[in-house]
Simulated scan of single mutants.
Amino acid sequence: MSLTKTALLRTWKSKCLSIALFALIGISIIAAIQGLTAGPKIYEPGGKPYIDYNNFRIFKFSFYHLIHNQDIYRLFPEDHWDLFKYSPAFALCFGILSWMPDPIGLLLWNLINSLCLFAGVRLLPGLNDEKKSFILLFCLLEMLLSVQNTQSNGLMSGLIVLAFALAERRQYMLSTLCIVFSFYIKLYGAVAFILYLFYPGKLRLFGWSLFWMLFFALIPLVVVSSNQLLFLYNSWLHLLIDDRSASTGVSVMGIMVTWFHLPGAKTAVTLAGVVLFLLPLIYIRRYKDISFRFLFLASALIWMVIFNHKAESPTYIIVMSGIGIWYWSQQPTALNRTLLILAFLLITMSVSDLVPAPVRNGFIRPYGIKAVMAIVIWFRIVYEQLFHPRNLNPTPA
């Protein structure tokens, strides 16, 4: 190897995490500029035009609707398109950004999403900086798609990875805070609670989880009455029930409907997914194997999307985080490398402008192609958990 190549390699290894960090900050700024300079969007023929960063506006105005004692789960067409579907606690917490001018608030929201994932991956144990950088760079384009849509998926992914990393360090107060907050953003964050089976101090984990659950459930009382809060939870529950029955998403259920015309299989598919997800837990002795715990973290991240009836393209930053952790937390194999490349092509690149619009709109999106490799790799992870016990990086739990 030439001196130049050796120097470049050393520079990369010493600066790789900084490169990943600057890349995440860069796409956050780019997405904010795109949203602020883009023209208005019309979501239905003949409808009212709305600001391009509509999801951010939904979150922003949820705080004002909350403090004005309105039903935050109804439509507010004068402010934004579509419904607010998160918890009252999230609406309250978003007040930190709501009072800011949109350019500042939008940029900070994008940075929160990107940097939370960076923090989680940065703290993962047992991986060197180069592998951590590869995970983050592998997710980069999916993160860009998520922040371009000003969604919370980067934050969701980051909170769960961060919760895992903190649990590995026995920082249970902060770890449970991350998972509980993810639950109050999107309910499927509760899937990550299963990770706590791997750690000692179950009573402490339960106590902190219960504390944070009650904290976020009741914190809206600082701005609304108890009766109003009960009303909001009832309204939220009805919204979630109606929402589940009305959609299938870019998911296993979506493929069952679009490929096999089986709309009635939603419950059966979900139950089968739960059983397969939990089945590797029978190997209790492997809980002390960090490679097993990494596989379960990856499985959880992918599962909560591919079995989510509301999964959409920007949600797949969560999937790609799981795939990256799966691949770079173990020794590479030819098969896994092939699956990784196919995942990048079919999940990330399939919806990019490099694919002709007629193919994207006529085949990729209608048939949920983005979900295919996520499902394949999730089954691969379950197979590895069940039939390929590896003791690559054993550490005591």
Rank of each mutant, 00 (worst) to 15 (best):
L17T: 08
A23F: 08
I25S: 07
I25D: 04
G26K: 06
I30H: 07
I33Q: 06
L36S: 06
L36F: 07
A38V: 09
Y50D: 02
D52M: 13
K60S: 10
S62P: 04
F63E: 04
N69F: 12
Q70W: 02
R74N: 10
E78M: 12
W81G: 00
F84R: 05
K85L: 12
K85Y: 10
S87N: 07
S87E: 15
I96V: 14
I96E: 07
L97F: 11
D102C: 09
G105H: 07
L106C: 05
L107F: 10
L107Y: 09
L111A: 12
L111G: 10
I112G: 00
C116Y: 05
A119D: 01
V121G: 00
S133N: 03
C139R: 02
L140C: 03
E142F: 13
L144R: 14
L145C: 12
G158A: 01
F164N: 00
A167S: 15
L174T: 03
S175G: 02
T176I: 06
C178V: 00
V180E: 01
F181P: 04
F183M: 11
Y184E: 04
I185W: 13
Y188M: 05
F193T: 02
F193D: 01
F193A: 00
F198K: 00
F206M: 09
G207K: 11
W208S: 04
L210M: 15
A217P: 12
I219W: 11
I219G: 11
V223T: 02
V223R: 00
V223I: 08
V224P: 09
S226L: 12
S226I: 11
N227Q: 14
L229R: 00
F231Y: 13
L232D: 05
Y233V: 05
W236L: 15
W236M: 15
L237Q: 15
H238P: 01
S245I: 12
A246C: 04
S247E: 03
T248H: 09
S251K: 00
V252R: 00
M253P: 15
I255F: 11
F260Y: 13
H261K: 05
V269A: 15
V274A: 14
V274T: 12
F277G: 06
D289F: 07
D289S: 13
I290C: 13
I290Y: 12
S291V: 03
S291I: 04
R293T: 04
L295C: 13
L301E: 02
L301C: 04
I302F: 03
H309T: 14
P314F: 02
V319N: 05
I325N: 03
Y327W: 10
Q331H: 10
T333W: 01
T333Y: 00
A343K: 04
L345I: 09
L346K: 01
P356Y: 04
P358I: 02
R360I: 10
R365A: 10
R365Y: 11
G368F: 10
G368V: 07
V372M: 07
V376D: 01
V376F: 01
I377H: 03
V382S: 09
P389L: 05
R390M: 14
